[in-house]
Each structure stands twice: as C-alpha cells, then as structure tokens.
Nucleic acid binder design. Structure first.
Length: 487
RNA sequence: GGCCCCAUGGUGUAAUUGGUUAACACAUCACCCUUUCAAGGUGAAGAGUACGGGUUCGAUCCCCGUUGGGGUCACCA
C-alpha cells in the first residue's frame, strides 16, 4: 500500500542551468509535499553521457538553494533511498532489464543506426501512420543472439510492447487518458553504452524511492503509457500522475531559450528576488481561486493543491513578474532592503564611495515606492550617489526659464542662511525665496529639482533636498547655474 | 502526418461542479493625490467565454463535430 505521507521528486537532467519551466515543476512538487507534510526529493537524471556538463549538478543544487526549494533527500543529503544520481545506479537498472528480458517483456536489439534510419525512411515512404520499430530483433534465436554478442556487436534493450487492451491511466490534472497499444513503440530501455534511458530509469527509481506522486511537465504525457506498461510488467503499483501545463513563449510555443531568458540564473542576475520569482511562477498554471496575487512562500504552501492546477499552457509574461518584484521589495523591512542596496552598490561604479546606513535608509524610504528592482536605486536615483552627470534636455526645455538663473541664485542664498536644515526648513526657505521675488513656488521647485538631480522625476523635492543636505544642494545649484545653457 | 493534450479580454486567472450586468490581477488610458514621477485610490476601455450543433426551462460549465494552438513520435531528458 502506498504510504500516506506523499513522496515527490524533482528529476532534472543536469544541463548547466535551471530552466524556469523546471523551476515551476520543482515548485509544484515542493508545494505539494510541504502542504501534505510529505518529502521532496531531488534526483539527478544524468543518464546521457553525451550531454554531460561539468559542474551542472552543483549549479542546479545551488540555484535550488537560492530559490529556497530545499529538498529532503538528494545529493549531499542522502536519505535511505540513494544514491540520487542515476549514473550511480546502473546495476539497479541492469537488474530490472534482465528481469524483463527473462520474462520476455524486453529484448536485445542489435539493429544498427543505419538500419533504423532506413526503416524509418521506408515507413515514411509507405506513408505508414507512424514510424515504429519493427520488432526485427525480437525474432532472433538464442543462437543468433549469442553469436552477435560473441562477435562484439553492440546492442540495446527494448521494451516488448505486446498487443492488448488500451493503456489507460488517470491524471490529476487531465483525468482519464488512454492510448492504443498499437501506437506505442518498443522503446529503448538500455542504451548500447549500458546506461538506461529516461523511461526505464524513472520508473525504476520512482518505485524504489517510493515516489507516490509523479508531478512533471506535459511534455511527458505522451510517453507515460510506456511507463505505465513498465509498471505493469514489473508488477508495481502505479504512482499518481499529474502532468503540468507547459510554460509558453509569447507565440505560445514551449518556452525556449531562443525567445528570451529561460534560466533561473538569468533572472537572478537581473535582480529578481527569489520571492517574486516563486510567487510569479506559482501563478502560472495555478490559482487558489481567491483573487490573491501576492504570495509569500508560506501562504503558497498552505493554499496549494494539485486539483486547482490549470490544464492549458501559460504564457510567461515578464511585465507581471516585474510588478511582483517591486511589490516584494516594498514588502520588506528597510533593513533588508539596505543590505540588498549595499550589495548592489558594492557591485557598481560607486563601490569605492562610502555611504552611511543612515543616508541609505533615507534613500530607500524616498525611493522604494518608485522602483521594481534594487538596481533601480542606482539607475533611477543615481544623483544620491554622484553629481548629476547631465541635465535632462526635455526637463530643461520645460522647466528652466531665462529667469531661473536668477531664481536659483536667490534660492542658494536663502539656503545658505540655514543651519542643519530639516525637510521643513528647506520648504520654508524655498517658499520664502519665491515670495521675496514674487514668483510662485513652482518656479523654484522644478528648477531646483533639475539642478540637484539632473532629471524631472523622483521623490518629493523637499525630501530630495533634505536627503542631499545643504552643502551638496547649494553646490549643485551653483553648478547647474553654470552648466545649464538655454537659448 | 499518427497519437495525445488544450481552448474565458493583450497576458495570468475566477465564476457555489448548469441560473452572475462573466469577476480579479498585470499591462493600457483617464481622473484624484503629489506643483514631479512613482506608489496608492477611483474609473474607463477590453472577452458575451474559438466556431457549429445538440441536451436542458436555462449553458463558460455536460455531449458531439469543426477549427485553431501545443506536446510528442531519438541509443535526449
């Protein structure tokens, strides 16, 4: 009987990075396990020697850690069902493929790549509905097989799909699915290099690792009947299947590298918070049905259920991710944002400058409502960290008038009289200066913003002046008077 | 092409498993707020639920067909 605490697994092949589709699969597995008090297992599917990438598994683990999907069993966290690298389980697969062969449920195939290719072409020419292996080697006599082996011919092991009823299984997301046996190919189980294919390895491992729910992408749906057959042949109980809808490009095809960033690491590098990524990806194909869009991980765990997973593919729309990223930043305590900002600064051209925490906190308070990324602090309010490098032409054209030089001069003089000015002091001084000259405060507000920041947008001017401080404000005003030219 | 899956505004989703003026969020636009911008608030535009048949007093929801999209057909996963 299946144990009632679920065991699920994320079983990626180590390609060198974590695909966001993989992240979604991993996340749903994780959420499901945590919601049910079950175990989340990481298993590395490294059975393709041709695609071996040095350090890929380590990279994967690192990314999973960063994103916060901690596994209960897996590499460097051995449970009782290891090893968790398929490349270290070769004997196990061999054992079961031998068993299948002994029972006539699998057989050795010596066909060369050339023969297979010809076969496929022939079938195409005859317009056969489907290209399938012709079971040629199933009819080899024991003597022929021996002779082939003695001759050193390499072989693969194939699944022997026998005629019979339709292969049926039920899927949590898609309900009942069935396939005609005639449409199922004699899948290769063991490759000629002795490594298993995914099909054999995942069935054997899922069974041995006591996986109760197989939650994976929809791209596996059409090979599931092969797996079902394998479970049947091996006399094993079927896990519960849940095939998740695919993540799509803008043009609705399966999310791919060619059409934008696809690696979680790319998003990390671009400054997306792990919380935002998790939140966003969770909503691609699932919703609690309560109109909530902003989620912390704990809420996701509490609310998640496979039953509410959507059937159709979901387009990965970065704009919403950007919004969520801003929301998640804003939801953090200023102290946390401070740490992130410091890291960002340490990594920037301002690395050699020194800013006090007190100052940075003020910047954060002033700017956090206006940003989507931590890096926006540096790009959208660079003036907190350096002198304005230039003055936005459009703002100059709109806000800097011939008499602005005079106004700013007067304003600088007024500021000069202040001692340790507060925000309110700056405001009072500006209004007084405006009144003295007999102009509206707006005639001062906009030019002074331009003078101290170089641009026309940002925090309230008086906050801006206060954060910058009297000295910088006055010197920047003077600089602006000299530098800004209008006709 | 065979097999399989899917189908609600531009995008992500909702709609007591047949009864709503088809809801929410992102994006867009407008207004309010702020003498800026953003955030926030209010509102607008945007789908009559791919299409056609049924079943039903009544279909987004159930059935059939069509169309469209996607996945898969490797000694890759």
């Amino acid at each position: 009987m299946i144990n009632n605490t679920p065991r699920v697994r994320f079983a990626p092949s180590p390609t060198g990075y974590l695909h966001v589709g993989g992240l979604r699969t991993a996340l749903y597995n994780y959420l499901f396990a945590k919601n049910k008090g079950g175990k989340f297992i990481l298993r590395i599917e490294d059975t393709d020697q041709n695609r071996f990438v040095e350090g890929a598994a380590e990279q994967l683990v690192e990314t999973l850690n960063w994103i916060g999907l901690n596994y209960d069993e897996g590499p460097n966290k051995e449970g009782e069902y290891g090893p968790y690298f398929q490349s270290k389980r070769l004997d196990i697969y061999k054992k079961y493929s031998n068993q299948l062969m002994d029972e006539g449920k699998a057989y050795k195939c010596f066909c060369t790549a050339e023969r297979l290719k010809e076969l496929r072409e022939e079938q195409q020419k005859q317009k056969l509905p489907q290209a399938k292996y012709d079971k040629h080697c199933l009819n080899l006599s024991p003597e022929e097989i021996d002779a082939n082996i003695k001759a050193g011919k390499s072989y693969v092991v194939r699944l022997n799909v026998k005629p019979g009823d339709k292969v049926k299984f039920s899927d949590v997301v898609r309900k009942d699915v069935e396939f005609d046996r005639e449409t199922i190919d004699d899948q290769i189980l063991i490759k000629s290099d002795g490594f298993p294919t995914y099909h054999l390895a995942n069935v054997v491992d899922d069974h041995l690792m006591k996986i109760t729910h197989v939650i994976r992408g929809e791209e596996w749906l059409s090979s599931t009947p092969k797996h079902v057959l394998l479970y049947e042949y091996l006399g094993w109980e079927l896990p519960v299947f849940a095939h998740l809808p695919l993540l799509l490009n803008e043009n609705k095809s399966k999310l791919s590298k060619r059409q934008g960033d696809v690696a979680v690491e790319d998003y990390k590098d671009k400054g997306y918070l792990q919380e935002a990524l998790i939140n966003f990806v969770a909503l691609l194909g699932w919703s609690a049905g309560d109109n909530v869009e902003f989620y912390k991980s704990e809420d996701l765990i509490n609310k998640f259920s496979l039953e509410r997973v959507q059937k159709s593919g979901a387009v990965f729309n970065v704009e919403k991710l950007n919004w969520l990223n801003g929301e998640h930043i804003r939801s953090k305590p200023n102290q946390d944002i401070l740490e992130m900002l410091k890291n960002e600064l340490a990594d920037s051209k301002f690395a050699n400058k020194d800013f006090s925490d007190d100052f940075l906190i003020k910047v954060i308070e002033a700017m956090k409502e206006r940003i989507s990324f931590v890096s926006d602090f540096l790009t959208r309010s660079n003036y907190f960290f350096e002198e304005p490098q230039s003055y936005d032409e459009k703002v100059v054209a709109k806000r800097w008038k011939p008499d602005s030089y005079e106004h700013m001069k007067k304003l600088a003089e007024e500021f000069e009289t202040l001692k340790n000015p507060t925000k309110d002091d700056f405001e009072a001084a500006l209004r007084k200066a405006a009144e003295d000259i007999g102009v509206g405060a707006g005639k001062m507000i906009h030019p002074v913003r331009l003078a101290v920041s170089g641009i026309g947008v940002g925090p309230g001017v008086f906050d801006l002046l206060y954060i910058l401080g009297k000295e910088k404000v006055i010197s920047r005003i003077n600089t602006a008077i000299n530098k800004i030219k209008i006709d």
